[in-house]
Design a protein around this nucleic acid. Structure first.
Length: 346
DNA sequence: TGGATTTGACCGGG
DNA sequence: CCCGGTCAAATCCA
């Protein structure tokens, strides 16, 4: 089993190298490509090292869970879900504290403060708090399908003190729900105003709220950069090759401007934490590296995502065509994808 | 009218 | 007791 994993990783690494060779003459920014690809390769290295060293990450099935579409519902994920089921709210709350947590910093490049951090999931805001020492309040979102499907995924969105154009989005828990957002462009599914004291007063006005949403979307992905970080914790459903045992490890990636022209901010780690979407997204990257290159940013959101990413080529290797077709069907956007937001631009 | 948001209250951990 | 996180009633809106 482990040997198979290594083989898969090695193949993935080779494929990434090939991809690198293909990308270089085409990419808008070779440095960007190189940076990202080096990141991917380094993830492979770490993953392989870990496998050789033993299972630093934990259970082998965690690793298995990230390999290939056949393990979309990883055993760990199921166990994880079971752990969270049939518990009183308090227990769930306690459990939630142990749930995987990771943070993204998304530059939204908006002076208006009306930018959302849409990630293709349906979120429902359930609270907002002023945080001590923070200039902006923190908004709390939970998965819309929590009641219906028991999905305990939550996220917190807070505008960065240092750079108000950056949203710090902390995700907690993995989505266990079946999202219906797949039917619509991921980035357009859940526009949410970010907590901003300057605008929060307007939120009572629904029309303004809607306008905000539009503005959010129109500003989406126009930021000068995307900076992601991972406040690592060990995910229960898959491994953390780069930072498997160092929760305090924070990795910040600053992306050059050349990567900013995209609307893929809507696809964040959550997408990739979901095995089926993670793979498909990466597939689409493989298929259309230039068109979709922007959302590499999101792929970089955390090492965990990279973990997911690197698992994809292995599947491609096994059955390239079939998986690619599969991926296209799975991708959250249609062929018009980046421009589906046109309706939001007036 | 049903779903989403707002917002003050509530709770538990540190 | 403070603060972060959640609840839930009131409110908003399509």
């Amino acid at each position: 089993m482990e040997e198979t994993l290594i083989n898969e990783l090695v193949q993935g690494m080779e494929l990434t190298k090939q991809l690198k060779n293909h990308l270089y003459p085409l990419a808008s920014s070779p440095e960007s490509c190189d940076f990202l690809i080096q990141k991917i390769l380094s993830t492979y290295d770490k993953a392989l090292s870990m496998l050789n060293l033993g299972d630093l990450v934990g259970e082998p099935h965690q690793v298995a869970g990230i390999l290939g579409p056949t393990t979309q519902s990883s055993p760990t994920s199921e166990n994880f879900d079971q752990d969270l089921n049939d518990q009183c709210p308090r227990d769930v709350y306690k459990k939630r504290k142990t749930m995987p947590r990771w943070t993204e910093q998304v530059s939204v490049g908006s002076e208006t403060g009306l930018v959302t951090a849409d990630d293709g999931y349906n979120w429902r805001k359930y609270g907002q708090k002023d945080i001590l020492g923070a200039s902006f309040p923190r908004a709390y979102y939970r998965c819309t399908h929590r009641d219906a499907q028991g999905c305990l995924a939550t996220k917190q969105v807070q505008r960065s003190d240092k750079d108000p154009s950056i949203l710090e989005i902390t995700y907690r828990g993995r989505h266990t729900c079946i999202q219906t957002s797949r039917e619509i462009p991921a980035f357009a599914s859940t526009g949410k105003e970010i907590p901003n004291q300057n605008i929060s007063h307007h939120l009572g006005d629904g029309r303004k709220r809607k306008a905000h949403e539009l503005e959010l979307l129109s500003n989406y992905g126009t930021g000068p950069r995307v900076k992601t970080e991972e406040t690592g914790e060990i995910f229960p459903s898959f491994s953390f090759p780069s930072t498997p045992i160092e929760p305090e490890n924070v990795e910040t990636i600053i992306f050059p401007d050349s990567l900013k022209e995209n609307n893929f901010l809507g696809i964040d780690s959550q997408e990739f934490l979901s095995p089926e979407t993670s793979e498909s997204n990466f597939f689409s990257l493989l298929l259309c590296p230039l068109e979709n290159f922007g959302f590499i940013e999101n792929l970089q959101s955390s090492d965990s995502e990279i973990t997911e990413i690197v698992s994809a080529p292995t599947s491609v290797t096994n059955s390239p065509i079939g998986n690619l077709d599969f991926s296209l069907d799975q991708v959250d956007f249609d062929p018009n994808f980046p421009f589906d937001t046109s309706e939001f631009f007036f």
